[in-house]
Simulated scan of single mutants.
Amino acid sequence: MDVMKLFKEDLIVTGLEAKNDEEVITALGNLLYLKGYVKKSFVKAVIDREKKYPTGLPINEINLAIPHTDAEHVLKPAIALAVLKKPVLFKNMADPCQKVKANLVFTIALNDSHNQPILLQKLMSIFQDEKLLLTIKESQSASSIFDIIKLKFKEENVS
């Protein structure tokens, strides 16, 4: 699986304003829908799944969330990424009683559920690099974020 092929510059949003996790999921889900990556059912399915299986991931200063849902709601694979203007609370995946103030949200749309563990493992190279996450958070444009991610995968030869 070539992870870089899942990232598209036009699926990266900077300065997204949202009051809560559902607004973030809706914004990214609608973007994926408008670009032809997911079915209309995607947004509701992600919101429903997030309630049962939270995806907030605390990583010191730059926290993130990786909402996703079942393959049946996806037409073709992609990752939509939002850099939030202000952090939004997501439930912590390790302890749903706790909340995570997410700065970055990676909404994953996969049409083959067998690839999900592989993808998450490969994305960990981004998630574990706090300096890279900070650079993404502080970037002003989708094109610069896309270039940063592309360079990261090229350097690590993660494909």
Rank of each mutant, 00 (worst) to 15 (best):
D112F: 00
P54G: 11
K99T: 06
D147W: 06
D95T: 08
L28I: 08
A82T: 01
K101A: 07
K39M: 02
I79T: 05
D48Y: 01
N30K: 13
Q128N: 13
P96M: 00
L133W: 03
E156C: 13
V13A: 05
L34G: 07
F90N: 00
S139C: 08
I66R: 01
T55S: 12
K137A: 08
K19T: 03
I126M: 13
P54V: 10
I47E: 01
D129M: 08
E9Q: 15
T26Y: 10
E72Y: 10
I126N: 03
E17W: 00
K40C: 01
K85E: 14
A80N: 03
N30T: 11
S159N: 14
N111S: 12
A65K: 04
C97F: 09
L57P: 03
F42H: 01
E156A: 15
N30V: 11
N20L: 10
I145P: 04
Y33K: 15
K40N: 05
V158Q: 11
H73P: 03
E130P: 00
T55N: 07
G15M: 12
L57T: 06
K40A: 04
L11F: 09
I126Q: 05
E61S: 09
L57C: 06
E23Q: 10
K122P: 06
E155W: 14
K35F: 12
I118V: 14
P117D: 01
N60W: 01
D95M: 06
K51T: 04
A18S: 03
E72L: 08
D147Y: 08
K40I: 05
P58H: 04
T26R: 12
M1W: 01
E156M: 14
L104K: 01
E22S: 12
V46G: 03
K99A: 05
L123G: 05
V158D: 09
L133T: 04
M1E: 06
